[in-house]
């Protein structure tokens, strides 16, 4: 099969992922880095980031950006915790309201972007401030969750045999991932997201419903953020200052996952790899012991730089091939 320009970033992602994983596996083989347990832990530890990144993938594919995801996670988690604590809401109801609220919040930002033509960057920036502030209004500090249903949910493990177990958060992450692939590859909505990000003007002239796609993309991201907030509460607390700055990690995961920041090109599976890469870096640095946590940030920055420059290269090459 011929490799096309748009596949270069995702191939690079895969290469980076394998390279990092292989290097870490060899370097820390004595401490059991190369084990199913450690691998499964990538999914458990990064479930929250992963779910938020999947929502972000759709937004970035459509040519937008969503800075509010971290704050929405914080708001959802504190909402669920305090709703159960203060108003004795049953957990299912609290979770349902939280997911609905996140979706409506995202859709609202999408509506402002759609109808008033404001830049997504600014609208979601306001959304970020707003959600964070609203979270603090609910409660200033972390609120513990103590409810039989929740305890059971957070204790839940799906045994895969061989002592390998998946937690509820990992399962939610994987389910979200599968549904996201369905949305992106097998629905008109998903394909319209690609078209919108590929060339908005063309999408309009092709008669695609670009306005409603735009709105729905932010609603989807809001839903994913709220779901990530639910995953946070599985740690049995809600915290208004949860996930500060997580939007940056999510954007990084999407870009490192090979999605073009200008939109139109990328895969949900790439984002999964991107999240894995971030997880591998973090775990490897923990395993290494003497390297400190800030190397994670520097490494992410360097990877971002490489992928953004790679994207520029792919785009200019594309221009040249179309011109000639």
């Amino acid at each position: 099969m011929r490799i096309t320009a748009k596949q270069i970033p995702i191939i690079a992602t895969l290469a980076v992922c394998l390279l990092l994983y292989g290097t870490a596996a060899i370097a820390f083989h004595d401490r059991g880095f190369f084990s199913v347990g450690v691998f499964v832990n990538f999914f458990i530890d990064n479930a929250m980031l992963g779910i938020a990144s999947i929502g972000m993938t759709f937004v970035i594919l459509s040519g937008g950006i969503d800075l509010s995801v971290g704050s929405v996670i914080g708001l959802t988690s504190i909402f669920i915790a305090s709703a159960m604590d203060r108003y004795k809401l049953p957990p299912i109801v609290a979770i349902f309201v939280a997911l609905l609220g996140g979706t409506v919040f995202g859709g609202g930002m999408g509506a402002v972007i759609r109808y008033f033509g404001l830049p997504p960057f600014l609208v979601t920036l306001a959304g970020m401030f707003f959600a964070r502030g609203a979270g603090f209004l609910l409660h200033l500090e972390s609120v513990p969750i103590d409810h039989p249903f929740y305890n059971a949910l957070s204790e839940f493990h799906l045994a895969l045999g061989g002592g390998i177990e998946l937690t509820a958060s990992a399962l939610i992450f994987l389910a979200t991932f599968i549904i996201a692939i369905y949305l992106a590859q097998y629905t008109r909505f998903g394909r319209n997201v690609y078209a919108l990000g590929g060339n908005e003007q063309s999408a309009v002239l092709m008669g695609l419903p670009t306005g409603s796609v735009k709105m729905r993309v932010y609603a989807l991201s809001g839903f994913c953020s709220a779901l990530a907030g639910v995953v946070y509460t599985l740690g049995l607390s809600g915290n208004p200052s949860a996930a500060v700055g997580l939007e940056l990690d999510a954007i990084a995961a999407v870009v490192i996952g090979g999605t073009l920041l200008t939109g139109g090109v990328g895969y949900v599976a790439g984002t999964l790899l991107g999240v894995l890469i971030l997880g591998i870096i973090q775990t490897a640095i923990t395993f290494q012991g003497s390297l400190s946590s800030w190397w994670t940030k520097i490494a992410i920055g360097v990877l971002l730089l490489i992928f953004i420059l790679l994207q520029r290269f792919v785009q200019t090459r594309k221009l040249r091939t179309t011109a000639s």
């Binding site: 520097i298 992410i300 520029r312």
Partner: peptide
Amino acid sequence: AQVQPIVATLILMVAGRGIAQLLTNG
């Protein structure tokens, strides 16, 4: 390099704090 400003400065936004922590050893 003609990278969009939001994207271009995002790199330093992420890595900058890491560099600052590196300098002060965390």
